[in-house]
Simulated scan of single mutants.
Amino acid sequence: MKFGVYSVLAIVAFLPVGARADSVADCNDGSNPTQQIRGCTKVIARTMLGDPLSTAYMNRGIAYAQRNDMKKAIADFTSSINANSANNFAYYNRGNVYLDLGKAQQAADDYSKAIALAPDMSPALLNRGIAYEMLGDRTASIADYRAALVLEPMLQAASEGLKRLGVVSLVGE
């Protein structure tokens, strides 16, 4: 069962002189994972700067995840975090892979890091709620579903999570 929604960021920061525009375009194009992996690999080989390198690793990790190569996806998301530890989307996406693999505690830890960097990241709150639900932590799960709904009131998956846990109201149990 796939829980994660993989985020795609465009590489808009500085690129070194050797980086070709078509490699960058391929790295940013999520419609063809094979082409995206090839483009991101070229960008990574030519990029030394933290933000663009982090984004290239993240985009390639997304492509690997879409191809169900979760080991490579996790490695690239980790490399993305190593290149820029403030990349909340890298933590979020690595959490999605962990959640897809049934590693709920690792997923919750990554979502917590993403939320610490971006407290208004409703998808991370939603998915951490799912992870907590998988771990059997009803109280934490309810809190995250509610927080996600405060940010995004029409978030159906959060409402469904509350219903699964027997919570009928956003305010009371």
Rank of each mutant, 00 (worst) to 15 (best):
M1R: 12
F3K: 08
F3R: 10
F3M: 13
F3E: 11
V5L: 14
V5D: 15
S7K: 13
I11G: 03
A13E: 15
L15K: 07
P16R: 06
G18T: 07
A21Q: 10
V24D: 01
N28W: 01
D29W: 03
S31A: 13
P33N: 07
T34F: 04
Q35W: 06
I37F: 00
R38N: 09
L53W: 08
L53E: 05
R60H: 08
G61P: 08
A65Y: 04
R67Y: 00
D69H: 07
M70A: 01
K71I: 14
K71Y: 06
I74S: 00
I74P: 02
A75N: 10
A83Q: 11
A86L: 12
N87F: 05
N88F: 11
F89R: 07
Y92C: 08
G95F: 02
V97I: 11
D100F: 08
L101R: 10
A107L: 02
D110K: 03
A118T: 14
A118M: 10
D120P: 01
A124P: 11
A124N: 09
R128T: 06
G129R: 00
G129A: 09
Y132M: 14
E133D: 15
E133H: 07
E133W: 00
A140M: 14
I142P: 03
A143Y: 10
A147L: 11
A148N: 12
V150F: 04
E152G: 01
E152I: 05
M154D: 11
L155N: 12
A158G: 10
S159E: 10
S159K: 07
S159N: 07
E160D: 15
L162N: 02
K163E: 13
S169C: 09
